[in-house]
Simulated scan of single mutants.
Amino acid sequence: MLELHGVNSGYGAAQVLRDLSLRVEAGEILCLLGRNGAGKTTTMQTIMGLLPLMSGRITLDGQDIGSLPPHEVPRAGIGYIPQGRRLFAGLSVAQNLEIGLQVRGAGKDVLEEVLDLFPRLRERMDQPAQTLSGGEQQMLATARALCIQPKALLLDEPTEGLQPSMIEAIRRVIVKMRKQGVAILLVEQRVDAVLSVADRVAFIENGRNGEVLSAEALRQDHSIVDRYVGV
Protein backbone atom coordinates (compact mmCIF):
# COMPACT_ATOMS: atom_id res chain seq x y z
CA MET A 1 0.00 0.00 0.00
CA LEU A 2 1.23 3.47 -0.96
CA GLU A 3 0.27 6.31 1.39
CA LEU A 4 0.83 10.05 1.49
CA HIS A 5 0.22 11.71 4.85
CA GLY A 6 -0.14 15.52 4.96
CA VAL A 7 2.39 16.07 2.17
CA ASN A 8 3.66 19.57 1.42
CA SER A 9 5.92 20.04 -1.57
CA GLY A 10 6.75 22.34 -4.46
CA TYR A 11 9.42 23.98 -6.57
CA GLY A 12 11.87 26.01 -4.53
CA ALA A 13 9.91 28.64 -2.62
CA ALA A 14 6.75 27.94 -4.65
CA GLN A 15 4.63 25.53 -2.65
CA VAL A 16 2.24 23.41 -4.75
CA LEU A 17 1.01 20.56 -2.55
CA ARG A 18 -0.68 21.53 0.70
CA ASP A 19 -1.36 18.82 3.28
CA LEU A 20 -2.14 16.28 0.56
CA SER A 21 -3.09 12.80 1.74
CA LEU A 22 -3.71 9.76 -0.48
CA ARG A 23 -3.94 6.01 -0.04
CA VAL A 24 -3.57 3.43 -2.81
CA GLU A 25 -4.22 -0.15 -1.77
CA ALA A 26 -2.41 -3.16 -3.23
CA GLY A 27 -4.42 -4.36 -6.22
CA GLU A 28 -6.18 -1.02 -6.69
CA ILE A 29 -6.13 1.64 -9.39
CA LEU A 30 -6.54 5.13 -7.96
CA CYS A 31 -6.81 7.95 -10.49
CA LEU A 32 -5.68 11.44 -9.53
CA LEU A 33 -7.86 13.88 -11.42
CA GLY A 34 -7.80 17.68 -11.56
CA ARG A 35 -7.28 20.71 -13.76
CA ASN A 36 -3.92 21.56 -15.33
CA GLY A 37 -1.67 22.97 -12.62
CA ALA A 38 -3.62 21.34 -9.78
CA GLY A 39 -0.56 19.42 -8.58
CA LYS A 40 -0.91 15.98 -10.19
CA THR A 41 2.57 15.72 -11.69
CA THR A 42 4.03 17.42 -8.62
CA THR A 43 2.53 14.61 -6.55
CA MET A 44 4.22 11.99 -8.71
CA GLN A 45 7.58 13.76 -8.63
CA THR A 46 7.41 14.20 -4.87
CA ILE A 47 6.75 10.49 -4.35
CA MET A 48 9.77 9.70 -6.54
CA GLY A 49 12.00 12.09 -4.58
CA LEU A 50 12.47 14.37 -7.58
CA LEU A 51 10.99 17.28 -5.62
CA PRO A 52 11.72 17.99 -1.95
CA LEU A 53 9.26 16.83 0.68
CA MET A 54 8.78 19.97 2.79
CA SER A 55 6.78 18.11 5.40
CA GLY A 56 4.55 15.07 5.77
CA ARG A 57 5.25 11.37 5.19
CA ILE A 58 5.25 9.02 2.22
CA THR A 59 5.19 5.29 2.96
CA LEU A 60 5.18 2.08 0.94
CA ASP A 61 3.93 -0.96 2.86
CA GLY A 62 4.68 0.97 6.05
CA GLN A 63 8.27 1.85 5.05
CA ASP A 64 9.05 5.56 5.10
CA ILE A 65 10.34 6.44 1.63
CA GLY A 66 9.90 10.22 1.83
CA SER A 67 13.50 10.78 2.90
CA LEU A 68 15.08 8.52 0.29
CA PRO A 69 17.22 10.01 -2.50
CA PRO A 70 15.64 9.66 -5.97
CA HIS A 71 17.76 6.68 -7.05
CA GLU A 72 16.69 4.70 -3.98
CA VAL A 73 12.93 5.12 -4.49
CA PRO A 74 12.70 2.62 -7.41
CA ARG A 75 14.78 0.17 -5.37
CA ALA A 76 12.14 0.39 -2.65
CA GLY A 77 9.62 -0.87 -5.19
CA ILE A 78 8.05 2.09 -6.99
CA GLY A 79 7.91 2.12 -10.79
CA TYR A 80 7.40 5.46 -12.54
CA ILE A 81 6.28 6.17 -16.09
CA PRO A 82 6.60 9.96 -16.37
CA GLN A 83 4.88 12.24 -18.82
CA GLY A 84 7.19 12.41 -21.83
CA ARG A 85 8.53 8.88 -21.09
CA ARG A 86 12.18 9.94 -20.51
CA LEU A 87 13.74 6.98 -22.26
CA PHE A 88 17.45 6.73 -22.98
CA ALA A 89 16.91 7.72 -26.60
CA GLY A 90 20.26 6.60 -28.00
CA LEU A 91 20.17 3.21 -26.28
CA SER A 92 18.44 0.17 -27.71
CA VAL A 93 15.19 -1.29 -26.45
CA ALA A 94 17.18 -4.09 -24.81
CA GLN A 95 19.52 -1.65 -23.07
CA ASN A 96 16.62 0.44 -21.74
CA LEU A 97 15.03 -2.70 -20.32
CA GLU A 98 18.35 -3.85 -18.84
CA ILE A 99 18.53 -0.60 -16.86
CA GLY A 100 15.15 -1.41 -15.36
CA LEU A 101 16.21 -4.98 -14.54
CA GLN A 102 19.35 -3.78 -12.74
CA VAL A 103 17.41 -1.55 -10.31
CA ARG A 104 16.36 -4.48 -8.12
CA GLY A 105 18.52 -7.24 -9.57
CA ALA A 106 15.83 -8.92 -11.68
CA GLY A 107 16.82 -11.64 -14.14
CA LYS A 108 15.93 -13.01 -17.55
CA ASP A 109 12.72 -14.59 -16.25
CA VAL A 110 11.35 -11.14 -15.39
CA LEU A 111 12.42 -9.81 -18.79
CA GLU A 112 10.54 -12.62 -20.52
CA GLU A 113 7.41 -11.91 -18.50
CA VAL A 114 7.56 -8.24 -19.45
CA LEU A 115 8.14 -8.99 -23.13
CA ASP A 116 5.16 -11.33 -23.10
CA LEU A 117 3.08 -8.28 -22.17
CA PHE A 118 4.58 -6.25 -25.03
CA PRO A 119 5.35 -8.65 -27.91
CA ARG A 120 6.04 -5.74 -30.25
CA LEU A 121 9.10 -4.83 -28.18
CA ARG A 122 10.46 -8.35 -28.54
CA GLU A 123 10.71 -7.69 -32.29
CA ARG A 124 12.63 -4.45 -31.74
CA MET A 125 15.20 -5.30 -29.07
CA ASP A 126 18.16 -3.98 -31.08
CA GLN A 127 16.38 -0.86 -32.26
CA PRO A 128 17.31 2.54 -30.71
CA ALA A 129 14.52 3.86 -28.52
CA GLN A 130 14.43 7.15 -30.41
CA THR A 131 13.41 5.36 -33.62
CA LEU A 132 10.27 3.80 -32.10
CA SER A 133 6.82 5.21 -32.70
CA GLY A 134 5.18 7.20 -29.91
CA GLY A 135 3.07 4.24 -28.89
CA GLU A 136 6.06 1.91 -28.89
CA GLN A 137 8.02 4.36 -26.77
CA GLN A 138 5.17 4.39 -24.24
CA MET A 139 5.24 0.58 -24.24
CA LEU A 140 8.99 0.67 -23.61
CA ALA A 141 8.67 3.18 -20.77
CA THR A 142 6.00 1.00 -19.18
CA ALA A 143 7.99 -2.19 -19.72
CA ARG A 144 11.10 -0.64 -18.18
CA ALA A 145 9.12 0.31 -15.07
CA LEU A 146 7.71 -3.22 -14.82
CA CYS A 147 11.23 -4.68 -14.96
CA ILE A 148 11.76 -3.55 -11.36
CA GLN A 149 8.80 -5.74 -10.28
CA PRO A 150 7.11 -2.78 -8.60
CA LYS A 151 4.89 -2.90 -5.54
CA ALA A 152 3.45 0.44 -6.68
CA LEU A 153 3.26 1.89 -10.17
CA LEU A 154 2.88 5.60 -11.03
CA LEU A 155 1.66 6.54 -14.51
CA ASP A 156 1.49 10.16 -15.61
CA GLU A 157 -0.90 10.54 -18.58
CA PRO A 158 0.15 7.26 -20.26
CA THR A 159 -2.37 7.52 -23.12
CA GLU A 160 -1.52 11.07 -24.18
CA GLY A 161 -1.19 11.31 -27.97
CA LEU A 162 -1.63 7.58 -28.60
CA GLN A 163 -3.85 5.91 -31.15
CA PRO A 164 -6.72 3.73 -29.85
CA SER A 165 -4.96 0.39 -30.36
CA MET A 166 -1.98 1.54 -28.28
CA ILE A 167 -4.28 2.94 -25.59
CA GLU A 168 -6.02 -0.41 -25.33
CA ALA A 169 -2.68 -2.24 -25.07
CA ILE A 170 -1.56 -0.01 -22.20
CA ARG A 171 -4.97 -0.37 -20.53
CA ARG A 172 -4.75 -4.17 -20.62
CA VAL A 173 -1.34 -4.12 -18.96
CA ILE A 174 -2.51 -1.74 -16.22
CA VAL A 175 -5.48 -4.00 -15.45
CA LYS A 176 -3.19 -7.04 -15.37
CA MET A 177 -0.85 -5.34 -12.89
CA ARG A 178 -3.83 -4.61 -10.65
CA LYS A 179 -4.76 -8.30 -10.70
CA GLN A 180 -1.19 -9.10 -9.62
CA GLY A 181 -1.58 -6.91 -6.54
CA VAL A 182 0.28 -3.79 -7.67
CA ALA A 183 -0.91 -0.47 -6.20
CA ILE A 184 -1.44 1.85 -9.18
CA LEU A 185 -1.61 5.64 -9.08
CA LEU A 186 -2.78 6.99 -12.43
CA VAL A 187 -2.85 10.57 -13.67
CA GLU A 188 -5.10 10.77 -16.72
CA GLN A 189 -7.01 13.65 -18.30
CA ARG A 190 -9.30 11.51 -20.46
CA VAL A 191 -12.31 10.86 -18.26
CA ASP A 192 -13.48 7.91 -20.36
CA ALA A 193 -10.09 6.25 -19.88
CA VAL A 194 -10.26 6.92 -16.14
CA LEU A 195 -13.69 5.38 -15.73
CA SER A 196 -12.73 2.31 -17.79
CA VAL A 197 -9.97 1.22 -15.38
CA ALA A 198 -10.09 3.11 -12.06
CA ASP A 199 -11.47 1.69 -8.83
CA ARG A 200 -11.51 5.09 -7.12
CA VAL A 201 -10.89 8.66 -8.21
CA ALA A 202 -9.20 11.25 -5.98
CA PHE A 203 -9.71 14.85 -7.02
CA ILE A 204 -7.01 17.43 -6.41
CA GLU A 205 -7.55 21.19 -6.50
CA ASN A 206 -4.85 23.81 -5.95
CA GLY A 207 -2.61 21.16 -4.40
CA ARG A 208 -5.22 20.15 -1.83
CA ASN A 209 -7.40 17.11 -1.37
CA GLY A 210 -10.80 17.15 -3.02
CA GLU A 211 -13.38 14.41 -2.89
CA VAL A 212 -12.49 10.72 -3.23
CA LEU A 213 -15.19 8.67 -4.93
CA SER A 214 -15.67 5.29 -6.54
CA ALA A 215 -15.48 5.16 -10.32
CA GLU A 216 -18.98 3.72 -10.29
CA ALA A 217 -20.32 6.81 -8.50
CA LEU A 218 -18.75 9.03 -11.17
CA ARG A 219 -20.21 6.97 -13.99
CA GLN A 220 -23.61 7.74 -12.54
CA ASP A 221 -22.96 11.43 -11.83
CA HIS A 222 -20.59 13.33 -14.13
CA SER A 223 -21.34 16.67 -12.50
CA ILE A 224 -18.61 16.04 -9.91
CA VAL A 225 -16.03 15.62 -12.67
CA ASP A 226 -17.20 18.87 -14.27
CA ARG A 227 -16.81 20.67 -10.95
CA TYR A 228 -13.14 19.72 -10.58
CA VAL A 229 -12.00 19.43 -14.20
CA GLY A 230 -14.39 21.51 -16.28
CA VAL A 231 -13.45 24.95 -17.52
Rank of each mutant, 00 (worst) to 15 (best):
D221W: 02
L132I: 06
M125S: 02
L22G: 01
E168C: 06
M125E: 03
P119Q: 08
I174C: 09
P52H: 11
R171Y: 10
A94N: 08
A13T: 12
D192K: 05
V182D: 12
A198M: 03
R120D: 14
L117E: 13
A38R: 07
V175W: 10
V93Q: 02
I47N: 08
A106I: 06
R75S: 01
E123F: 00
L30T: 11
S67G: 15
I99C: 14
A193Q: 15
Y11L: 14
T43Q: 03
L195E: 14
A38K: 08
I184Y: 06
G135Y: 10
N96P: 04
R86S: 08
Q189S: 02
I78E: 10
F118N: 05
Y11S: 13
G107I: 00
R35K: 06
R86K: 14
E205I: 12
N206S: 15
L53C: 13
D61A: 14
A76L: 07
L186C: 02
R200L: 07
M48C: 03
Y80F: 01
A26Q: 07
V191E: 08
V194L: 09
H71Q: 12
A129Y: 11
L195A: 14
E157F: 09
G79N: 07
R23E: 03
V114L: 00
L218V: 09
G34Y: 04
S196A: 14
R219H: 13
I170W: 00
P70V: 00
Q15A: 15
V182E: 13
R86I: 02
Q83A: 04
G84A: 04
M166L: 10
E72Q: 14
R124F: 13
L101H: 07
V225A: 10
V175K: 11
A94S: 10
T142G: 07
C147N: 07
L132C: 01
L32H: 10
R23P: 11
L186E: 00
E72P: 10
F203K: 08
G134S: 10
E157C: 06
V7P: 00
G39A: 11
N96H: 10
A141F: 02
D126I: 01
V201Y: 04
V194C: 09
Q127P: 00
V173M: 09
R200F: 01
L155D: 06
V7T: 09
Q15S: 14
Q138W: 13
G37L: 04
R23D: 01
Q63S: 04
T131S: 15
L213G: 03
I224H: 03
R171K: 12
D126R: 00
V110L: 08
I148A: 06
G10P: 11
G10M: 00
I174D: 10
S55L: 07
D116P: 04
L22S: 08
E160H: 12
M177D: 14
P128H: 06
L51R: 05
Q189I: 09
L185Y: 11
L155M: 09
E168W: 03
D19G: 15
V73Q: 01
R144V: 08
R219Q: 11
V197D: 13
E211T: 14
